[in-house]
Amino acid sequence: MKKLFYTLLVSVLSFSALQAQTTTIGDVELKNTVTVDGSSLQLNGAGIRSKYFLSLYVGSLYVPSKISDAKQVLSTDQKMIQLDIISSLISKEKMEDTIKEGFSNSMNGNTAPLQKEIDSFIAVFSEEVEVGDIFQFITNGSKLKALKNGKELTSVDNEEFNKVLFGIWLGDKPADKKLKSKMLGK
């Protein structure tokens, strides 16, 4: 009886420890800590991007240590935004249009100074987008890598571009104010 109790206790504690390593948003399980290019980043916050009452994707922000101020996040060198697609309503065309609109909002309508970088980045969405796809935008300050399902699709070496890209979700005119707040851990 004691052996069964201890076995059960160890199983419960192991399961609890495993759960403590992840956070679930909707049906998406996010790691609380990730290692990117040898650096540890922790989940700062995450939420569901909704539009017209439809859940589209889970957006999550990873930084070296918790930050609740958007401007501080934008000036932090190492960070990652992850988008986990949860809706079949998202297509490559809709992602392209949404990201272009996000750049316009992040740059107050004047995308000309970074148009070359924006065009290069938009190519990330050239293949069809499906439920379960994971996009990651990772920067070390100057260079940004864009990945889809773990495969690097493009990189952009421009610090200002990185701030503008992360501004799509964390800037003054974010794609979704509730998602911004959730990503900032509020």
Rank of each mutant, 00 (worst) to 15 (best):
N44P: 10
G45T: 04
A46T: 09
A46N: 06
G47I: 10
I48E: 12
R49I: 10
R49Y: 09
R49M: 12
K51I: 12
K51V: 08
Y52C: 08
L54S: 12
L54R: 14
Y57W: 09
G59S: 09
G59C: 09
L61M: 07
Y62N: 04
V63S: 00
V63W: 00
K66Q: 13
K66A: 13
I67R: 02
I67C: 04
I67L: 13
S68N: 15
A70G: 05
A70D: 07
K71S: 14
Q72H: 10
S75D: 13
S75A: 11
D77V: 02
Q78K: 15
Q78I: 12
K79V: 01
K79L: 04
M80A: 11
M80G: 01
I81C: 02
L83K: 02
D84I: 02
D84F: 02
D84E: 07
D84P: 02
I86F: 02
S88I: 05
L89G: 10
S91R: 10
K92R: 14
E93P: 08
E96T: 15
D97H: 10
T98G: 12
I99T: 15
I99P: 01
K100A: 11
K100F: 08
E101Y: 10
G102L: 03
F103A: 04
F103G: 03
F103V: 02
N105Y: 12
N105T: 04
S106L: 00
S106I: 03
T111V: 14
P113A: 06
P113G: 03
P113V: 08
Q115P: 05
Q115W: 11
E117F: 07
S120A: 14
S120P: 04
S120K: 15
A123L: 12
S126K: 15
E127Y: 06
E128A: 11
E128T: 12
E128K: 10
V129C: 11
E130N: 04
E130P: 00
